[in-house]
Amino acid sequence: MTSEPAHMNPARSFQGLILTLQRYWAEQGCVILQPYDMEMGAGTFHPATTLRALGPKSWRAAYVQPSRRPKDGRYGENPNRAQHYYQFQVILKPNPPNLQELYLGSLKAIGIDTSLHDIRFVEDDWESPTLGAWGLGWECWCDGMEVSQFTYFQQVAGFECSPVAGELTYGLERLAMYLQGVESMYDLNFNGLDGVEKVTYGDIFLQAEQEYSRHNFEHADTEMLFRHFRDAEAACRKYLEAGEPKPDANDQRHLMALPAYDQCIKASHMFNLLDARGVISVTERQSYILRVRELAKACGAAWLKTEGGGVAA
């Protein structure tokens, strides 16, 4: 093994942490994807998870996903919470029998020694009302801190997972803060270098947090967002209909599941922005969530009629 330069060490470099996790999961046979090019609330929304979790085909992937949660913005003033952060997402379908061991191996790879650290699997059932998805699993604790979510998907988009996929989500900032021993995410060393060459997380994202918090809470154009929500919803339906196979056609595959799902992602983000702006009442809130879920379900149904969803060409 080639020894890595010190500034790549996950205990002192944020990007080193990402690269180490990518390498580790690549070694386990995952395809390493890049972030999906749309705004989303969590790595689970990436079609590589939501859609690929459906259908019979085996699938192993890992990727970083920037996650946007407009409501979590704190104008850069909270050391632990932000409206934009990174998740590292791993999905293995079907889950291998030793998934817990593989996960612990990833902790070891980033320098968490299980003879020193208290690792625990604490019950945490996962549910995403907007995706019509749920699973059982744990939050994984390291010395009392939640460092990952570990879920066995049981249902996605309203469909039973068959086979079940195992999903791991690492909250990268929090994990890095622990590894680097800093109290604020903005103090994280991003590139692992020292002195003038050092770039911190704050150097890159603090201004963005401040600006986007203003945007999310004060200025986001709600009229436009409402319109975009409706547009995305309509487009999703339109694409689903367009891709639906004709009853008499030989090929019964759906042809537009992925573009339709993009619109579902978009609607979901529009809803999150509207929610942050406080323009959705409590009663309406539930109905918006239901509308997104209906889209997700329809996209899941369409996906199951595609090649990726297991239908032979």
Partner: peptide, 28 residues
């Protein structure tokens, strides 16, 4: 705190980690 480990450093790291989290929680 109740850990699940007889740690090789006598629990120093575990205590340190838990103190960090308690500190963050109490700050909140």
């Amino acid at each position: 705190l109740t850990s699940n480990l007889i740690a090789s450093d006598g629990g120093k790291t575990i205590v340190g980690g838990n103190e960090r989290v308690v500190r963050a929680r109490l700050s909140d």
